[in-house]
């Protein structure tokens, strides 16, 4: 930084940026030499997800469509709006629907539910789009094979997040969409009670796989979509799947850099 000059009159900007509080938060000021710009990435934990420099071709909007970055941002907004929803929502059959209703009617400027619901749809779209881009630029090829696989798992988890959340309003739409979706699990080979091969899993006359012991039962916590399902889906939706997603995203981001940054032609 340039040598300090004797201030002639009071400069508020300078007063703030040179205060101990400001400097303790933003380790580096907004200056324009390359070294300073590099430092502002390295000394900021959020920017630090990036390398200091990237290939110009890879940083272009026309190349990545920002779809991966946007997926991450959308996820963050969902975490925030989701936490706010959790303040109001109780995952029990007697409260769930009324809590959603109250959210709509009693909470001032109530678009929290909309932000969360439409955000969930948006994330599905951005993740599909990101995958589409990665495919079209051939960016899954070695050495990035495994990051693609992690991406596929993230894709599945994103859809499962959306699916488990769909049940929580506990209205007709929710209950029957989940009923239709989970009915398929009944037909899982060997593991569902109407699946091919399930009848073979028996000891003598005793069926091992029946409607009270198959995968669908495990998923729903009952033979039908009911109170047990609501609790299960709530915990999957708010705790289990997000945790897995965060872990996998960390690996995903870490690997992008270990695989040599955003792909470019050889």
């Amino acid at each position: 930084m340039s040598a300090p000059e004797t201030p002639k009159k009071f400069d508020l900007g300078k007063f703030i940026t040179e205060s101990q509080i400001y400097k303790s938060i933003f380790r580096h000021g907004y200056t324009t030499s390359d070294r300073d710009r590099a430092l502002s990435v390295m000394t900021n934990v959020f920017f630090h997800l990036h390398p200091v420099k990237v290939r110009k071709s890879g940083a272009r909007f026309g190349f990545t469509w920002c779809a991966g970055g946007l997926s991450f941002f959308v996820f963050l907004t969902l975490v925030v709006s989701g936490i706010l929803l959790m303040f109001y929502y109780r995952p029990t059959v007697e409260h769930a629907y009324n809590d959603i209703m109250a959210l709509r009617e009693h909470v001032p400027f109530g678009i929290m539910r909309e932000l969360h619901r439409w955000g969930a749809h948006a994330m599905i779209i951005t993740v599909w789009l990101h995958m589409f881009r990665v495919f079209m630029t051939g960016s899954y090829k070695p050495p990035r094979e495994f990051n693609w696989v992690i991406g596929v798992i993230l894709l599945v988890l994103t859809m499962l997040l959306s699916f488990t959340g769909y049940l929580l309003p506990w209205d007709q739409l929710a209950m029957w969409a989940v009923t239709v979706g989970s009915n398929m699990a009944r037909a899982t080979p060997f593991l569902g009670h109407e699946g091919p091969g399930a009848a073979l899993l028996a000891i003598g006359d005793i069926q091992l796989v029946h409607s009270g012991s198959d995968v669908r039962f495990a998923l729903l916590g009952g033979r039908f979509v009911g109170a047990g399902t609501l609790l299960r889906f709530y915990i999957l939706h708010c705790v289990a799947i997000p945790t897995a997603v965060v872990v996998l995203m960390s690996v995903h981001f870490w690997r992008i850099r270990k695989d040599g940054g955003i792909s470019g032609p050889l």
Partner: peptide, 26 residues
Amino acid sequence: EQTETNEKVLVFPYLIFIEFVMALAY
């Protein structure tokens, strides 16, 4: 892409700017 692949740009402000605009637009 090839013409630009050996050229490096600083993430700040170049990439951060794109990300910021996208986040804002979204």
